Computed example of a mutant assay.
Amino acid sequence: MAAATTPSMQEETSNTSSSRSVPFNFSQPPIIEGFNPLPRAKDESFKEKLIRKTKENPFVPLGCLGTAGALMYGLRAFHQGKTRQSQLLMRGRIFAQGFTVVALIVGVIGTALKPKQ
């Protein structure tokens, strides 16, 4: 009796696996109950997104540039043997990193508190 049920089980599983449909349609976003995504006007390029984000929070790129500048100038001073100047510039780099982190946090909080349009 066990031998008779085994072939029919294999036939059923092969029939159901071939007739299954794909669970997700990857060309469309998933439908989530209670969630309505905002329609996008268009896809942005990297440059457009960078400009938009810089306009939204200009202090983050300034902090990044300040950090990179202090690091480069400090490494150059270290290489030249100017230890005092190198130490001051490394401290300036830490200050610029802290400024960048604070700017990121303020930007995130500002975006979260901003009313939706």
Rank of each mutant, 00 (worst) to 15 (best):
G74T: 06
V60T: 01
G92C: 06
V60N: 03
E48H: 06
I51G: 04
R76P: 00
M90L: 14
I51P: 10
I51N: 12
T83L: 05
T83S: 12
L62R: 09
K53N: 14
L75D: 11
M90Q: 08
R52G: 02
F59S: 10
K55L: 12
T100S: 08
N57I: 10
Y73W: 10
E48Y: 03
Q87C: 05
M72Q: 04
Y73T: 13
L50M: 09
K49R: 13
P61H: 04
G81C: 07
G92R: 04
Y73K: 14
A68F: 09
T83G: 01
A68H: 02
G98P: 02
F78R: 02
K82P: 00
M72F: 09
P58R: 07
T67Y: 05
E56T: 14
Q87Y: 05
M90C: 09
A77G: 02
L62M: 07
Q85R: 01
T67P: 00
Y73C: 11
A77I: 01
V60H: 03
L50E: 07
F59P: 01
Q80E: 09
F59L: 10
L89S: 00
L88A: 05
A96W: 03
R91L: 13
L71G: 01
M72S: 09
M90W: 10
Q80P: 00
A68Q: 07
V60D: 06
F95H: 13
G74N: 05
I51E: 09
L71K: 05
Y73V: 15
K53T: 12
G98L: 10
Y73G: 03
A70R: 03
K49N: 08
G69P: 01
L65P: 02
L75K: 05
L75N: 15
A96L: 07
G92I: 02
Q80L: 08
K49T: 10
K55E: 13
G66Y: 09
F95S: 07
F95M: 12
F99Y: 15
Q85V: 08
K49I: 11
R52Y: 13
L88V: 08
M90H: 08
E56I: 14
G92Y: 03
L89K: 00
T54H: 07
E48N: 06
Q87I: 10
I51Y: 11
Q80D: 14
T54A: 13
T83C: 08
K55R: 15
F59K: 15
Q80I: 15
S86W: 01
M72P: 00
P58K: 09
P58H: 04
A70N: 09
R76C: 06
S86A: 15
L75I: 02
G66H: 06
G81Y: 10
A68V: 05
F95E: 14
T100I: 08
Q80T: 14
R84G: 10
Y73P: 02
L50R: 07
L65C: 07
T54E: 11
I51V: 13
G63A: 01
V60L: 08
Q85N: 04
P61E: 02
A68W: 06
T100M: 11
T67R: 03
S86Y: 00
